[in-house]
């Protein structure tokens, strides 16, 4: 079989070479853009992970009511920590912020300042959408003034990451469809050039297996080889990407990970099997 596979490579080296090049190029594009979208999503997600809810409480709330509310928010699914920030702490923070202009705070009535609860979730992206209905109910609880994200830009980032996640799925689906289309067309065109040979062999009494096995093996090697080559190309490009992406959000130091090993194995094998399957189907089609 090995001899036949080598002979098959040798006989059609031109078309197989071109096929390998096109497949590698297609997979490289797919991996590059998938990686880019994925990391964009990761950046936004990592940033949004620090997202916390702020629940402003009514001034002069009785300690029992505060405790009750604290317990209610603590009971929400996915909550990691609920911290009560007292008005004195708020004032200290305001004094720190306006230390250059202390006159701003001169006439501030401490009793008008609200206490608030700072609620951190284990995974804000996962948990926040789940607790939205409960939050709407809690906002109407006596003693609760208002619920809002701790920092408005983080809130926007959270929405952005939600959008990016959807875009990621959509882009991945489109990219994958384009990749599959390109692979199908390339493998079929390669075997279309061998149509006459397949027809002649079948006329001589060769079984589909006799004709198809070496071609399937070659297709498997080409497909999986193209995936590995594309990965190697991106790996070479990785250090550049690392620098380029690391500077996007300065305080976030996110490591660039192209593909975990299991995905690499899955991609290499999957691509090989897909090409082999296409090759088999083409042989069946041209078999007289």
């Amino acid at each position: 079989m090995l001899k036949k596979v080598l002979l098959e490579f040798k006989t059609h080296q031109g078309s197989y070479g071109l096929t390998f090049f096109i497949l590698t190029f297609s997979v490289t594009l797919f991996l590059f853009f998938s990686s880019l979208y994925y990391h964009l999503y990761l950046f936004s997600r990592e940033a949004a992970r620090s997202l916390a809810l702020t629940v402003y409480l009514a001034p002069d709330l009785r300690p029992q009511t505060q405790k009750r509310l604290l317990q209610k928010f603590r009971a929400l699914p996915g909550v990691k920590e609920v911290r009560l920030v007292a008005k004195r702490e708020v004032l200290r923070e305001l004094q720190r912020i306006f230390r250059e202009d202390p006159e701003i705070l001169q006439n501030l009535d401490l009793s008008k300042l609200p206490d608030f609860l700072e609620i951190h979730f284990q995974d804000p992206l996962r948990d926040l959408p789940r607790v939205q209905p409960q939050l709407r109910k809690l906002e109407k609880e006596p003693g609760v003034l208002r619920i809002r994200y701790a920092q408005s830009w983080l809130g926007r980032l959270w929405h952005l990451s939600q959008l990016l996640r959807r875009l990621l799925y959509l882009s991945m689906a489109l990219l994958l469809a384009s990749l599959l289309f390109l692979v199908v067309v390339t493998v079929n065109l390669t075997l279309e050039k061998q149509r006459e040979e397949i027809e002649i062999l079948s006329l001589l009494g060769a079984s589909p297996g006799y004709i198809g096995r070496p071609k399937m093996m070659v297709a498997f090697v080409l497909g999986s080889g193209a995936f590995l080559a594309a990965f190697a190309l991106l790996h070479l490009f990785e250090s550049y990407l690392q620098g380029a992406l690391a500077g996007v959000i300065p305080f976030l130091n996110l490591r660039l990970s192209l593909l975990p090993t299991n995905y690499l194995i899955l991609g290499t094998g999957g691509m090989g099997f897909f090409c082999a399957l296409l090759s088999w189907l083409a042989v069946q089609r041209y078999f007289s």
Partner: peptide, 13 residues
Amino acid sequence: RRHLVHLRRRMGF
């Protein structure tokens, strides 16, 4: 269809 190859092996065209 898959048996045709066996028949063809007995013939020349």
